[in-house]
Simulated assay, not measured.
Amino acid sequence: MEHILGECEAAGRAHLWSLAENFLRQRDVDIPNEPTATLQLGAPLCEAKDEEGDARIGETRLLRIVMSETTYLVWKVRCERVVEWEAEPEREHSKPELTERWYAAINARLELDMKKSDKRLAGKRATPTQRVLATWTGSLQNESDLPDDWTGVMGVLVGRPAVRPNG
């Protein structure tokens, strides 16, 4: 597990973690580039803190989501490469494919949060809208064009870097 999540030199792992790091940097949240397996598996315990050492609730929740989703995607692409592509050992995931898959995973979590905040869909178990807003605000595409409560707006996506990586 330590090798797969934290040491493997195969293409993909480092790129996925650089996407996570750059995305979180938008919200002034730092993670180590290519975190260890221990840190990845301990993601639910991670906290984003302010200068005084107090937890930043929205940023902490976003950090945990991004860490968990990135770890899972690292695992999935490794399994594809080793198991599904066993007969093609030279085959690797391209950076554009990995980038698209990472953003798709993060956007799927955003969409799930939006659905879970809808009291008509989730009922008593609905995630408070303020929690969803605190988690994702500051990370969205065209955010200035969105209403203050964008949780019911279809087509909201997480922000992407202004310049997409080449390759």
Rank of each mutant, 00 (worst) to 15 (best):
E21C: 09
R25K: 08
W17M: 11
Y72G: 15
K115S: 12
W102P: 00
G167W: 09
R81L: 01
K95G: 00
T70A: 03
V29D: 02
A126T: 02
N142M: 05
R91G: 07
L121D: 05
L63P: 08
L62I: 03
T135F: 10
E97H: 08
R101P: 09
A14P: 03
M154P: 12
R91I: 07
S144M: 15
Y72T: 15
H15D: 13
V66R: 04
T135C: 13
E143N: 08
E80D: 14
Q141M: 12
E92F: 08
S18D: 01
L73D: 05
L73Y: 04
C79I: 13
G138D: 06
R125G: 14
W85N: 10
V77L: 05
R78V: 08
Q141L: 12
D28F: 11
C79D: 08
R131F: 02
L112Q: 08
E92P: 06
N107P: 12
T71P: 12
T70W: 02
E100Q: 15
D148N: 12
T137L: 03
A87N: 10
V163T: 13
W150H: 05
I4W: 12
R120C: 08
T137P: 07
R160C: 01
E52M: 11
V132T: 13
Y103L: 00
T38Q: 13
N166K: 11
E2L: 13
R78M: 13
A134C: 00
E97W: 09
D54Y: 09
I31W: 00
E88D: 09
P96W: 09
L5A: 01
R125Y: 06
P32D: 07
A162C: 12
N166R: 13
P32C: 08
I106Q: 01
K116R: 04
R61H: 07
V74N: 04
L121Y: 09
G42D: 11
A104T: 06
D149R: 15
L62A: 10
R101H: 05
I4P: 07
P147T: 00
P128R: 02
P89F: 04
V29I: 09
W85T: 11
L41A: 05
L98N: 11
S144L: 14
L24T: 03
W150C: 02
G6L: 00
S68G: 14
F23Q: 01
A122L: 03
T70R: 02
L146W: 09
V153S: 06
W102H: 04
A126E: 07
D145V: 03
E90K: 15
T99C: 14
A14H: 10
